[in-house]
Design a binder for these strands. Sequence first.
DNA 1: CACCCTTTCAACCAAGAGGTTGACTACCCG
DNA 2: CGGGTAGTCAACCTCTTGGTTGAAAGGGTG
Lengths: 129, 129
Amino acid sequence: MDRLSQVFAALADETRRDMVARLADGDATVSQLAGSYRMTLQAVYKHLRVLEHAGLVTRPPGPQPRRVHLEVEVFDLMDAWTERYRRRAEQRYRRLDAVLAEMRDEESQHEQRGGHRGRPEDSGHPDDS
Amino acid sequence: MDRLSQVFAALADETRRDMVARLADGDATVSQLAGSYRMTLQAVYKHLRVLEHAGLVTRPPGPQPRRVHLEVEVFDLMDAWTERYRRRAEQRYRRLDAVLAEMRDEESQHEQRGGHRGRPEDSGHPDDS
DNA sequence: CACCCTTTCAACCAAGAGGTTGACTACCCG
DNA sequence: CGGGTAGTCAACCTCTTGGTTGAAAGGGTG
């Protein structure tokens, strides 16, 4: 499972998102966190491990009450991904607008002509995910 | 399952993320999409339904080759969420920096004094996810 | 109408995720 | 050293997920 999948999967769970929210206000220990949820400590611990494997959270080793720390930089990963495709889609819209504008221009130049219904499709996409 | 969970869960799958990438370059039909993956058309269709339920994709009803359309606005939902907690964590850092600076100041004012090791913890968090 | 292509539904299966209980390890403090 | 608290591991259960095959609708076009 690649990194991005792990991050998205980690945040797809409401409990884990709530933990992130909780940790944004300050580090906490496993048992402190467990106090907030109606499930066993072990279940909370499992959630924590998911967040940890996704890199959303770190637990610097040390003395007994180990504190869980949120690593917000991981959000940048998601942002980069979404931004990439948001941008592409927007560019496509702009291109489409341009094409439509062009068609309008042509139509108004030589008024009334046959219906040209060519679909500008089928441009092979370069297959990067 | 709430909306945000659906969106994150939808994007937690590599195949579905690739579909989003593919659709960012233009709408496509189910069978066109299916051509790109080494799984049955029905499996692709299932993925599409997940994306659709998450609101990441729409399929305006109409004549037979139904085209799948990407709805990038949904990304705003995720952005809003991440931004919220990123901001909180940053504010917390700033506050921590301020506290540390203050401690340094006090120390340098009346040089050498007893160790005051009060942990500024336990501020009840307002429990919103 | 009959055909063909696209889309959709349904039943089934293997693997994974979220949760539980129970036991075991690690550390701190008296 | 002994006990208590915090953290961890492991086995088990159930429900969901990603995938399969097989079959049924939908809807243009000859």
